[in-house]
Nucleic acid binder design. Structure first.
Lengths: 343, 343
DNA sequence: TAACGGTGAGAAACCGGTTACCGTGACCTG
DNA sequence: CAGGTCACGGTAACCGGTTTCTCACCGTTA
């Protein structure tokens, strides 16, 4: 009596009803079923109804792979990031996924583990499977990226731009941002600053490093030391000793994660923050405000980078006029991990 | 003179070299190219070499969609989670993605926004595009899940089990975990506890709620009040007032995020933690140790849930013998957000 | 009434792979 | 030297859709 009792056609394996079965059941050709399902062309109303009825009776859902093959279009976009453990990229992923989902697209993620070689093959592979690709904080050298980009299809860069190519990009003015952070420390009386450097292949790192060096050059009496570090909590933690040895009283960390690590490492060494050393991060990840002490940092609109990336990609996919690139200006957020230089 | 100068064949659109082009160029049939590319059957060594040479000269890469269609197999697995903003699910994603990548698989993520209806269609859709599906903390009622599961193909459940079905599942003994947390508070002298409840549809919430109620029933002189809350930082923050009004001195939050929110909300109300109110979370997300004060919580092996999920899925995909389900026992991690009850 | 335009739907080609099936020629054996 | 075996590789069918092409049939119009 109940509708579900007979379970429809023999579901066999991971079967799935095919368009041919629907066509046969409805007594029409596969072409007609296809037309009805896609609202294409004109099909007589009664026929269309019959097709729709049998389709839903059989529980027909078009096979997405067959569709991709025929149409040359999946409804999937790819995202390649250096490190999924970084809240910055998690936020970009969320922004992208949310925005894409609103337009019926899925996202496929891949993590390159900060390895340019891996990134290169991942990007190529993911691009082939998707309609478009978002490359976040690419660690690829300019020339590799330039060589690769044309083969990747619709591409949007986040946190990176490519002067020689016209690929939409969403960037952050890291130079200005890190300068704000450094100026903040200088204003507090710090004269010896340490920069906990990010991965050498990171464009964000390069921009920050250059900006800091130029600032140090401009200002008399400012000492800057760059300590090789990395981009993770563990990297920051491992740098605590070096920070102490450097004699710096103000620390500019590559990102918030590194800053947290340094905070924690210094804490273990019995160094008071900000009384003896001030630490600032970068990105303003959600937890920056809940550390002890809360972290001074430069805020970056991470979620928005993801959602805007989707918009750019969407324009690209529809051959709509390209949207403008945007450069976000980080906003200095002063919390309690920075204070007056000890004297 | 340089190899890259002529750019190979006219790259036309998002072209891509097809197997036919390779076959033509090498003077063999498509079947032979396919055989060579897949190391199938026996192809004479010299022929195979010729095919490989032309393939790489042309930059041939098999079209993944055509392959999926022919083979009925993508190399992609899906992950559906209620909320990508939750570090718990981010960790599961990483664990899964990492493990899957090691075996050449990609992961496609989808976020249901805690909405069972959305989850249902997402799961079905993602499952069709992937070889297998991981459903984390499903918010679906048992009967819906039971009805849905067989149609989803290879499926692994994280944070949920389905007694009536034999689907591999990785769970956490939330009852025991939350009991540990509550006992910890009781041992500190708290007699009135508040539970900041998770989403009603969450199995994790139901388990915790039941365990707490049964504990309260067993112990004389223990008051338990359950406050509707949710699963996010904002939810927790919004509950601060209610916590205060409840008169509870010990708070068991649904998860760490909620605990952070409550921590922050209470701070704004001028309530000292743990002096006036003790707060405990659940999950032990990475940042739990860096809040002010550091959060007492029950640790859950989040990353491992993801990587084990991959192992289960991998077994399923290869028709290998199913692996055993595992139930993780949370470990109480006492930090400084809990302390003796005020008197 | 014959020529004509338009509409609806089927036949067949196509997307780009994989693979069952079969034919050819080399080599072995009696 | 005829007949059988086997290795190799081409032909064609198939995966499940979409779309072009074509044709039959309808109602108009001259």
């Amino acid at each position: 009596m109940t509708a579900g009792a007979e379970r429809g056609a023999p579901t066999g394996r991971r079967a799935g009803v095919t368009i041919s079965q629907v066509a046969a059941a409805a007594g029409v050709s596969r072409a007609t079923v296809s037309r009805v399902m896609n609202g294409r062309s004109t099909v007589a109303a009664d026929l269309a109804d019959r097709v729709r009825a049998t389709a839903s009776a059989l529980g027909y859902e078009p096979n997405p792979h067959a569709r991709s093959l025929a149409l040359g279009r999946t409804t999937t976009v790819g995202l390649v990031v250096p490190d999924l453990a970084n809240p910055m990229f998690q936020a970009v992923l969320r922004g992208l996924s949310e925005a894409a989902a609103a337009q019926g697209h899925r996202v496929m993620v891949a993590e390159s583990n900060e390895d340019p070689a891996e990134e290169e093959v991942l990007a190529a592979e993911v691009a082939r499977r998707c309609d478009g690709l978002v490359l976040a904080s690419s660690r690829l050298p300019d020339e590799r990226l330039v060589a690769l980009a044309p083969g990747l299809g619709p591409l949007v860069l986040v946190n990176r731009e490519l002067p020689r190519l016209t690929v939409p990009s969403l960037t952050v003015d890291y130079g200005a941002g890190v300068r704000d952070v450094a100026e903040h420390l200088l204003a507090l009386g710090h004269t010896r600053l340490a920069y906990l450097a990010g991965p050498g292949s990171s464009a964000a790192h390069q921009a920050r490093s250059a900006a800091l060096r130029s600032l140090a050059r401009e200002r008399a009496g400012v000492d800057l030391v760059e300590l090789p570090c990395g981009s993770t909590f563990v990297n920051g933690h491992a740098s605590a000793r070096a920070v102490l040895d450097s004699g710096a009283t103000g620390v500019v960390a590559f990102n918030d994660l590194v800053a947290f690590g340094a905070l924690s490492g210094l804490h273990e060494l019995g160094v008071a923050v900000p009384d003896r050393v001030s630490i600032a991060g970068f990105d303003d990840i959600p937890f920056a405000r809940y550390t002890t002490p809360p972290l001074t940092t430069a805020s970056v609109p991470q979620h928005e980078l993801g959602s805007l990336a989707w918009q750019r990609l969407w324009s690209l996919l529809g051959d709509r006029p390209p949207q403008h690139n945007v450069v976000f200006r980080p906003r200095l957020v002063v919390r309690r991990s920075t204070g007056p230089a000890p004297r």
